[in-house]
Write a protein that binds this DNA or RNA. Structure first.
Lengths: 253, 253
DNA sequence: CGACTAATTGAGTCGCTTCAATAAGCGTGG
DNA sequence: CCACGCTTATTGAAGCGACTCAATTAGTCG
């Protein structure tokens, strides 16, 4: 049920110098920075540092003092909460250009862990909070994003509370193909069509932790979908959506 | 599983004239208005109207155009989402001083329904959005509240994804006693001690819809807690917490 | 190629749901 | 004020979806 805990101290957590310039940043238009002028964005950038995260490294722990917030530059992170006895629930998954952390709060509300090698742009929270206070456009952007995160959490509540394993998994795959397509479209702003061939960023165990299922249930349900002709499985991480309409039906849309 | 649908059109949805003055408002310090000066608050107040909601009346429907947002003045509302075939999940419960609705969005993301007779202070969304844009303190307050809502949603995700019926119910009761005490403390700002004797604002069915359980499971689990001496049940809506420590243990803290 | 990890598959169990019936609350009208 | 009737809650029995435990198989990386 709980994922195997990664090393108790973050493994291979490397610090990298400040970016030479935000101008070259691959997510400058899609991250919160997009709400700022070039000058403002560079000023914000001077507060931050780029940090490399190896797969499995934890960026922040639930309950820790909230020293930092971050933009995801590259890779995929999971946000999670656990019970005292180690059952884990993944709250959401952060892709490049997503913002993670808790501004204006003293405690980190969830654990943030890299599920594949990743790079983030890390800001000390105190300085970030001050910067936000003097830049209303940035605060507005944060609000918009938090509202969207809240809507995502709400959709997931419906999934976990009221949907079957097959419905949750079908919905997850459809959403994933959409999110991956968006993340892949490079520094530009235009959206992309949903992808059919995907590389799953999550292991079966992690998919289970996200959807509130046991790993065996995830595996069996995927096999079922494969037999039904809805998907194709390629190795551990590969997946092809063969019949999107069938998946939508399975998801209950 | 799904609650019996209330009348399709909101029953007895009465409109009441603008409040003579926000000064007399029972939640003026605890609602978002608390972030404003008296003058600003009155200006915001002139945009709104007070509206009475009978138990069961729906204030907004999921997917509707987002015409309005609101402060809860009195009573209790539920926010909910449903599957196409009628399974319902309650996303959260709004008490006096809580803010509901989706600013800066064209679609309402959830259904809002009064679970007991209620009064709300209703704002046209367009005017509200404009007002927020010119009052950074209010936007900051909205962000703070949205972040807290998100943390609540996250805690509920852990509940629904990974906890047993007894754990969810114990956690719900502890949280409820806290929230009711806060709501009860009147117009002042000071918090209150958690209450032991509660009047449940939700029916068994609604508790089930909130915790992702069948009504029978809610009933059986409450009876179990009563046998264990953790609680006492008084009629349909009355409940006394007899052993808070036991409840906390049951909740898995 | 071999060793380790992740995923699949099978069998059995359990917690919660479903279906069905009874009981308790509670508002209403006689 | 109490009896009636409707709604809501409780209780029981049976079923099932997902979980747990236990092998086995398939990927992946050195």
């Amino acid at each position: 049920m709980a994922a195997v805990a990664p090393a108790l101290t973050s493994p291979r957590l490397r610090l990298v110098p400040v970016p030479t310039a935000c101008q070259a940043c691959s997510v400058k238009n899609r991250a919160i920075c997009g709400a700022l002028s070039d000058d403002e964005r560079d000023a914000l950038g001077r507060l931050g540092r780029v940090q490399q995260l190896a797969r499995g490294a934890t960026l922040m722990w639930e309950g820790d003092e909230a020293h930092a917030v971050a933009n995801v530059l590259e890779g995929v992170l999971k946000l999670s909460l656990s019970t005292a006895d180690g059952r884990e629930q993944i709250l959401g998954v952060a892709y490049p250009s997503d913002f993670v952390g808790r501004p204006f709060g003293t405690r980190v509300p969830y654990q943030v862990t890299a599920v594949v090698d990743a790079r983030v742009c890390l800001f000390p929270r105190a300085a970030f909070d001050r910067f936000v206070a003097s830049h209303p456009a940035l605060e507005h952007e944060l609000l918009e994003r938090t509202l969207i995160d809240l809507e995502r959490a709400h959709a997931q509540l419906l999934d976990l509370g009221r949907k079957t394993a097959a419905e949750r998994l079908a919905g997850f795959l459809l959403d994933l193909s959409l999110r991956l397509a968006q993340a892949q479209c490079g520094p530009s702003d235009r959206p992309a069509a949903p992808l059919d061939g995907l590389e799953l960023p999550l292991s079966r165990q992690q998919i289970g932790d996200l959807l509130g299922l046991a790993i065996e249930t995830v595996s069996r349900t995927l096999q079922r979908m494969k037999l039904d002709g809805a998907i194709e499985l390629v190795g551990r991480r590969g997946l092809v959506i063969r019949d999107r309409a069938m998946l939508r039906r399975m998801a209950g849309y």
